[in-house]
Computed example of a mutant assay.
Amino acid sequence: MNNYFKYTPYLYLIVALVAAYKSIAVWSAEPDQAYLFLGITVLCLFMFGFRLWFIKRMDARNRKP
């Protein structure tokens, strides 16, 4: 189960990359939808960083005797 938590942040990174690509692709046609995808990109990047920080914190806590 512990290995699962080490790989989940990278799923957020993949979703952020897909959302950024989609935002660029629809920028000229539908700017409102592009802003939505930019918001999703920012949220996923935040979650990526938060999950990495949280995993490091939990590992440090579990190593202490």
Rank of each mutant, 00 (worst) to 15 (best):
T8W: 09
M47V: 03
A29H: 15
L38V: 04
A19V: 10
Y35W: 08
M58T: 07
F5E: 12
M1A: 11
G49S: 00
A60K: 06
I14A: 11
E30Q: 13
M1W: 15
P31H: 06
S23E: 10
S28I: 09
E30A: 13
A20G: 13
P31A: 03
Y21R: 06
T8F: 11
A60W: 09
F46W: 03
K6A: 14
R57Y: 15
R63V: 04
V18H: 02
I24N: 04
V18C: 04
L43F: 12
Q33I: 01
K56Y: 09
Y12L: 10
A20D: 11
Y7W: 13
R57C: 11
L17F: 15
K64L: 04
V18E: 03
F5Q: 04
I55V: 11
L17C: 14
L13W: 10
Y10R: 02
S23G: 08
Q33P: 01
I24P: 00
I40G: 02
Y10L: 06
Y12K: 04
R51V: 11
G39T: 01
M47R: 02
N62V: 09
K22R: 14
M58R: 08
L17Y: 14
Y10Q: 05
F37W: 05
L36C: 04
L11C: 06
N62I: 05
L52Y: 02
A16N: 02
A20F: 12
N2V: 06
P31I: 01
I40S: 00
W27S: 09
G39N: 05
Y4I: 15
I40F: 05
Q33Y: 08
A29T: 15
M58Q: 08
D32S: 12
R63T: 09
K56V: 06
V15K: 00
I55Y: 03
T41Y: 07
P9Y: 14
V42E: 02
W53I: 10
I40P: 03
K22T: 14
P9H: 06
A34N: 03
L17T: 14
I40K: 00
A16L: 10
I40R: 00
L36H: 06
G39S: 07
K64C: 03
M1L: 08
I55G: 01
A20V: 13
M1G: 10
E30W: 09
A29F: 14
K64E: 08
W27H: 13
P65W: 07
Y10S: 06
E30F: 09
A25L: 12
V42W: 12
L17I: 15
F5K: 03
K64V: 07
D32G: 09
L38G: 06
I40L: 04
W53L: 05
L38R: 01
